[in-house]
């Protein structure tokens, strides 16, 4: 067998789980299409190339965060600190991105390093202390927010170079760069999850930690990698955001973790761990983005927007779970 993890698991249970995963994804995909169809009928502005391009561009930041958090949730963990990581990255990258100072690679690398470090910090504390990830990352969330404010003295970091602003605001052959970055990392994350040993270990750790340990998987190593990876993806989202709004913001990313977790869960990632796909998460993120865009297009008042958004999110997940129960 090419898969060393699944050999000592019950094959029928595995088959059932895989099937459920497939159907779950299918269910949310149907819900997504349904909402798109409804929006296209209600507002003629929705189904245009330019609008859809904008939706995907807007979704890219949340999707990158959601990819990272999907890894974490699959291993049975959670990461609440990613919104703050966005802020730290934003401030760090912006500080190195002033025109005529450093080449554009420097803000990218320092920003990424900041995110990877925060992620590694999470991983280290979680694996060494056995304190639940919820608590640890809640702490890191506050630490990160504080760090971002300290580094920026509470003020936005402005005046960034054109080459840096290209990352989130440019176009390559007519396609906005955030969409290209999104696609590249979607493919990379999917490959890691589906085609590598690491990905299989993630499912194994989240599915049954004891069994994974018994089969010789080094739990701590997997967790370390996963939280670091999540921090790195959050950093990437932070760089993209900073470049898109052409300023480093210490209060950027407040509440982003919830949108990212929502995208993952809408996309069929189970909070109890062991299941989830990047495709599902991407659709989850697109669903949130499409709803928000559609409500703006229809000029639904702010008060109602939040209610409608909540109802649709719950509805989508309920539809998804009904689908799973039927089978």
């Amino acid at each position: 067998m090419e898969n060393p993890v699944q050999t000592d698991r019950n094959p029928t249970v595995e088959a059932y789980k895989t099937r459920m995963r497939g159907i779950g994804k299918y269910g949310i995909f149907v819900a997504f299409l349904l909402i798109c169809v409804v929006l296209s009928v209600v507002t003629p502005k929705f189904l245009t190339v330019s609008n859809l391009t904008i939706v995907v561009t807007q979704v890219s930041i949340n999707a990158l965060l959601a990819f990272g958090v999907t890894f974490v949730i699959i291993t049975g963990g959670i990461d609440l600190s990613i919104g703050s990581t966005v802020a730290v990255t934003s401030v760090v990258a912006a500080s190195f991105a002033h025109p005529d100072t450093y080449p554009v690679l420097v803000p990218i690398l320092t920003g990424l390093a900041a995110g990877l470090l925060l992620g590694a910090f999470n991983g280290l504390v979680i694996t060494k202390s056995k304190v639940p990830p919820f608590i640890v990352t809640l702490g890191t969330m506050t630490i990160g927010r504080g760090l971002a404010l300290i580094l920026s003295k509470g003020r936005p970091v402005s005046n960034l170079s054109d080459s840096f602003n290209f990352i989130g605001g440019g176009q390559i052959v007519g396609i906005p760069t955030p969409i290209i970055i999104l696609l590249v990392f979607f493919i990379l994350c999917s490959v890691v999850l589906k085609k590598t040993v690491l990905g299989r270990y993630m499912y194994a750790v989240g599915g049954n930690e004891q069994a994974a340990k018994a089969s010789g998987i080094q739990l701590n190593k997997v967790k370390m990698v996963v939280y670091t990876l999540c921090g790195g993806l959050a950093a990437l989202a932070g760089i993209l955001l900073t470049s898109r709004i052409t300023t480093g913001q210490p209060n950027a990313g407040v509440g982003f973790e919830l949108d990212a977790i929502a995208a993952a869960i809408i996309g069929g990632t189970s909070t109890s761990g062991g299941t989830g796909t990047m495709t599902g998460t991407l659709i989850g993120a697109l669903l949130i983005g499409v709803i928000s865009n559609g409500l703006d297009l229809m000029n639904v008042t702010s008060y109602y927007q939040q209610v409608v958004m909540g109802i649709i999110i719950i509805g989508a997940v309920v539809l998804d779970s009904l689908n799973q129960h039927k089978n």
Partner: peptide, 23 residues
């Protein structure tokens, strides 16, 4: 012709404006 919250936030406002331009 339209009014909506951008929650005092630059990124949110940018998305909102993009959507309005579409509309």
């Amino acid at each position: 012709i339209a009014h909506q919250t951008g929650e005092w936030d630059r990124a949110k406002a940018m998305s909102l404006m993009e959507n309005w331009i579409q509309s």
